[in-house]
Write a protein that binds this DNA or RNA. Structure first.
Lengths: 352, 352
DNA sequence: CGGAAATGTGGCATCGATGCCACATTCCAC
DNA sequence: GTGGAATGTGGCATCGATGCCACATTTCCG
């Protein structure tokens, strides 16, 4: 980029001072060709001799030309902005997801428009409308309601759902292999002799929670154990609620191990265990689905399932871009990102 | 938003199937007025009778009209997309910053285009160029080099620097009150009797590190202590490096307390202390600037300075929007976000 | 060496919304 | 009842890049 307007201007140009930027016209004049040729030489593929191309490039560089995406998008009915609609950037899960998406988009010269919907259906729909207005060719969303992906698709926007599926969706989706991951995690505990394992889970309507719960059950089945339904604690997506649920599991149900279905619930569970000064893992084992950094910093470090969140984000972006480029067959694609069990110090043999 | 095209379409419309969206023309026809009137009725303020306005609104709603931002931006030479340029979304500091920014922007009906530059000058410049191409009216950046804000400003884009200042910048800036915060933190340790306090710091060229170091020195001066320069460990922005620096401080310099200048360095320091099985705070105290969630989950919880990162983000956004709206006087504004000392269990009296 | 095919470039209309101005009404005061 | 100000609406050009087609030039082959 060549610096235009050498002298640094005042902080605030008097409101909307022009700062006229060069256009293709200017470049054309500078290079002695027509605007059409400039356009082709700089962007569109083909149709320009190397000599002209070089000359145009040089001219553009010289006068500091930068393409106007608005004009380009309007005329060519395309855009390189991708909408990313997530619940909460402050949760490391979503942050990692967004980071992976952004990385991949940037590499492909796309931009990420990030919107937090705070898990609220109304805000989600509002965001969808904004993205529609921006004419983005695609959106990656961790959906709150099925309506959002639906509306986007009905308006010709490609959609990839991340982390979860809602009902009978027709969009592509990238999820963690929840069932397998949760099953491995549960079997790890069973192998240590645990038979009374509490499961903290916040929702089971979304595929995410349902998958993890299914894995929990499958592990029991695989080992000829029946699941005591009382040990499945349905709680809300909130550390404090998880703490209360943990308390109940400990008081009433004599669990020897606890699994939390995500990183937020794990905080609550851990807080309760620490509060009671229970020795982990000597007196009780704790494990979590969704490895986030703090889990390896606490003492003992938590046994977790790493769902490769960043890779999941990359995967969403790759899938969406392929869809936009029309490289994919029509039928919807479901990508399962493998989950990996990481055994750390928080799980141990069942106390006798 | 009224759902257009009721039936769910196939996942992938055959490449670029039209999906023609209604335009002002369509709304105009539907409402029996002219396109100009539609435009005024829906967006521009003034000049439309309540009756017409209502009629147009209804018509737009009925046919599912959504303004095309590209066309609007092109014509009116404005945009509601704001560029946000940060180093690393996976670091909770930046994630919180971005969350605060997004929240405030969304409330003002602006969108956030988020780009990670990985702390790399080249990527930062590339991102700046992209944002220029998008014709964003403003950018919030945690700058890597001074060139980036400079180039943006020269092209008429308003800039707010977040978290740090580089050299003689002419842009608005929002920073933590580093000096005061670090001073309070240091004085807290001094009050506990510590005189050999190690300071882990990764850079001092940016205002951030310089401010924190200044606070560290000020605290000593306020208490008539001289600073042993050997206790200032200049390390790189990396947990492992911080760990090595911590090791050196412990081996060679008999520190009784360690302050780390940010959340990343704190991880390294903590790892080293745990590895040596040092009792915190009985044998050594540890404290950090920049409170992030894991710091209250570890045992003992870390004494920190909370720099209100989310609020810092909000503040950046508010400042930028005010600038864009021309509500601010010309001279550059510097906002210092107060820092708050949070005493937890990791700091205690100096061992005798 | 002529004509067809290939290649490269320019002209012009266009994407969709809006700024600006002109003009048709309505309203009021004298 | 008439002039002139308000008020509300429509017409038209325009933002900047690009798609498409026409045409000029070169290349190639029989």
């Amino acid at each position: 980029m060549s610096p235009r307007g050498q002298a640094a201007r005042a902080v605030s140009q008097p409101a909307q001072q022009p700062v006229r930027r060069p256009t293709v016209q200017d470049v054309a004049r500078e290079a002695g060709v027509s605007p059409s040729t400039v356009s082709r030489a700089l962007h569109t593929r083909g149709y320009a001799s190397p000599a002209v191309r070089a000359r145009v490039r040089a001219a553009a560089e010289r006068i500091g030309y930068v393409t106007d995406h608005n004009a380009r998008n309007l005329r060519s009915r395309t855009s390189t902005s991708i909408g990313v609609l997530i619940s909460d950037l402050r949760n490391p899960f979503y942050a990692d997801l967004a980071a992976g998406i952004e990385e991949e988009l940037r590499a492909a010269e796309y931009q990420m428009v990030l919107v937090n919907d705070n898990g609220d259906p109304a805000e989600e729909m509002q965001a969808a409308e904004t993205l529609l207005a921006m004419r983005v060719p695609g959106v990656i969303v961790t959906p709150v309601t099925a309506k959002c992906p639906q509306v986007l698709q009905n308006n010709g926007v490609h959609v990839v759902c991340a982390d979860r599926e809602l009902g009978r969706s027709t969009s592509d989706v990238v999820v963690s292999d929840n069932k397998t991951g949760a099953c491995e995690l549960t079997e790890h505990l069973i192998a240590l002799g645990h038979t009374r394992i509490g499961m903290l889970i916040d929702e089971t309507k979304w595929s995410t929670g349902a998958g993890r719960l299914a894995g929990f059950r499958a592990a029991h089945a695989n080992n000829d154990l029946s699941v005591d339904e009382n040990l499945i604690a349905y709680t809300s997506f909130d550390a404090d609620a998880a703490r209360l649920s943990t308390r109940k599991l400990l008081n009433k149900h004599e669990v020897t191990a606890i699994i939390s279905a995500n990183n937020v619930l794990a905080q609550g569970a851990l807080a309760e265990l620490k509060d009671r000064r229970l020795k982990i893992p000597r007196q009780i084992s704790l494990a979590a689905y969704d490895d986030v950094p703090w889990m390896s910093l606490v003492q003992p470090a938590l046994t977790t399932v790493d769902q490769s969140t960043v890779e999941m984000g990359r995967s969403c972006a790759r899938l969406l871009l392929a869809r936009i480029r029309g490289e994919l067959p029509a039928r919807r694609r479901l990508v399962k990102v493998p989950a990996r069990l990481i055994v750390r110090g928080s799980t141990g043999p069942v106390p006798r």
